[in-house]
Computed example of a mutant assay.
Amino acid sequence: MSRSQRYSKKSYFVIKRFILFFSLCISAITALYFYSQSLIKIEAPKKVLGEKIIIKLPSGDHVFTYENLIVNEDGKLYYKGERNQIDLTGGIVTYEEWDEK
Rank of each mutant, 00 (worst) to 15 (best):
S11H: 08
R6E: 13
E67M: 12
K9V: 13
A44E: 13
S38T: 12
M1C: 00
K16N: 06
N68E: 12
S27N: 10
L39W: 05
Y79P: 01
I19G: 03
Y7F: 08
Q5N: 06
D87I: 04
E100D: 13
Y35K: 11
S59Y: 04
S4M: 06
Y35H: 08
L20C: 11
E97I: 07
N84I: 04
I86C: 00
M1N: 09
E82G: 04
S38W: 09
S4K: 14
L88P: 03
Y66G: 02
L69F: 11
K47Q: 12
A31H: 06
V48D: 13
F18K: 14
S4C: 03
A28H: 04
V14F: 13
L20F: 15
K80T: 06
V71M: 02
S23T: 15
K52P: 04
K10W: 10
A28S: 15
S36V: 01
L49G: 05
T30E: 10
E97N: 14
G60L: 05
I54L: 07
E97L: 13
L57P: 00
F13K: 13
S36D: 08
K9R: 15
G81T: 04
I53D: 04
W98F: 09
E73W: 12
Y79D: 01
D74V: 05
I86T: 03
T89L: 04
L32H: 08
E43G: 00
Y79S: 06
F34H: 14
F21Q: 07
I86A: 03
K46P: 00
I70G: 00
S38A: 11
S2V: 00
K80L: 04
V93W: 03
L39N: 07
F21H: 12
A28M: 15
K76W: 05
D99W: 01
I92E: 08
S11A: 07
N72K: 10
L49Q: 08
I42K: 07
S27F: 13
G60A: 06
F13I: 08
L49E: 12
L39E: 09
Q5A: 12
F21N: 11
R3N: 00
G60C: 05
